[in-house]
Design a protein around this nucleic acid. Sequence first.
DNA 1: CTAGTTGCAAAGAGTTTGCATGGCG
DNA 2: CGCCATGCAAACTCTTTGCAACTAG
Lengths: 137, 137
Amino acid sequence: MEQKSNEYKTKQREAILEYIVENKEKHITADEIITRFSKQDNPIGKSTVYRYLDKLCKENIIRRFTIDGSSSACYQYGKDGDSCHEHYHFKCEKCGELFHVGCQLMNGIKEHVLEEHDFMIDSSKTVFYGICGKCRN
Amino acid sequence: MEQKSNEYKTKQREAILEYIVENKEKHITADEIITRFSKQDNPIGKSTVYRYLDKLCKENIIRRFTIDGSSSACYQYGKDGDSCHEHYHFKCEKCGELFHVGCQLMNGIKEHVLEEHDFMIDSSKTVFYGICGKCRN
DNA sequence: CTAGTTGCAAAGAGTTTGCATGGCG
DNA sequence: CGCCATGCAAACTCTTTGCAACTAG
């Protein structure tokens, strides 16, 4: 029950997934994908992009975020709850910059929250909001 | 430079702010406000609501969130970075429920992140995503 | 062939903006 | 009265959906 049986492999899907994998360390928006393929000979229609992203999310191949303040969703390659390369997101509310921080110590929170609050944090999806060092000066 | 000088006090603004304050322990959406006042004799226009919410955010009287998965923004009474009644948000990605958890221990994270990562977390605005106890069974 | 996939265009949700009218001070 | 605020409708952005044409297997 991993792979759906009745699925076709199309050029569009191949290209979209390849682009997502190439950018696995970043978040990308649906629009970035649409724009990326809009200039070539056979542009990929946006409904195709949205539908495929939706499909990949449901199959747990990519993950969907919403960064506060941005009106559009972000996508990133990787399973939900994927703990392989733990990293946290910090978004500065002042300058808007998004920091990707790898931190072992913070995994302690995860345990605490799981034991005390009975909630399993998906750290790769959680975004911390606040003010970064530069902006506090 | 605290209070803007040329401002009028109108019934609409009074009503909107009152409603936000009444619900200070919850998040409310623009639409909830619009709906709330849509049935009365003089409904409040949505542009008024959006414009006023925007204004209150800029003046740091209310705070704006985006809960992942929801397409609309949420608002809550209280300053940005307001640490008076610390509480954290946990959102279950499975059942969609949003938990409001008060937790002293977790303030330790805040210190750690500030010291080690030079980032001041606004805990009242941060939402943790994951799976709640019920849904893990 | 035939069912899944594409792409266009239209529909939707949420939010913003332009502009004439209304009301606070 | 002057200036800000309101409310309507139209514009906009992001996303979803309906449907006919297309194509992988």
